[in-house]
Amino acid sequence: MNAVLKKVNSVFMSLVAAVFLSPIVLMILTSFKPEAEVLNPASVVPKHWTLANYQYLLGWSEEAPFGRWLLNSFFIATSVTLLVVLFSSMAAFAITRLRVPGGNFVLGIIVASMMVPGQLFLVPLYLMLSRLHWLDTPAALIIPATAGGFGVFMLSQFMRAIPEAIEEAALIDGCTPMGLYLNVSLPLCAPALATLGIFTFVGSWNDFLGPLVFMDSVRNYTLPVGIALYQSSYYTEYGLTLATSVLATSPLVLVFMAFQRQIVESMSSTGLKD
């Protein structure tokens, strides 16, 4: 690409980013407005800045404080992410690189399973977790989450995109399957692994139905679910809802930044960075 085109591209992408960002800026600004002011589209910037919404959220402690929920969320989302990335990459590696017999058929089943609406699993899953005595423990949110087909499908497609020549070269060098997995496939898929990690983390963090249905004690809720208890079921307190969302999402943004750094580092180490 020539330099002018590059410049135009950068400007355009920045514009797009600004458009995407603006509702979020609006959300953050609105969370600092008093409730009487929130729905006024004429003034985007608060006339009276207030921390009342945040004070209300952070200052109210019942069975569980904010910190406990943050801890739960963090523990659950991290565990789910690690397990999903590990299990999915192993399975994808077995299917695409080790060419396990019937592997493509297995992948077909996995993809097909994604087409069944998950809402119907709720009842059987609840009964199963109840028999396992996992209800009201983090296991109920962690272990079943590793069964999703998204990660296996995604990593299979990414591994297929790796030129076979690279793998063959490694095999000629006498690489074992484990060596191939650890030293060739994983590093080459690092951007995909990090992307899957982000998706899994965000999905687990924002899961609403799971914690509500599988957890019985408020102490065991995750942050977005626990913090949502402050909102009325009947009406929307806009300032409060948006402040809630800012609080529940900001840890995610931190984690995303860390992951992103990881992508960049992993690429420079594999020599793929341009």
Binding site: P65, F66, G67, R68, L70, L71, F74, T78, P251, L254, V255, M257, A258
Partner: peptide, 15 residues
Amino acid sequence: ASLGLLFLFALILGF
């Protein structure tokens, strides 16, 4: 470092 920071944040708020 960032995960550590988050963890610390959670601990302080939690306990």
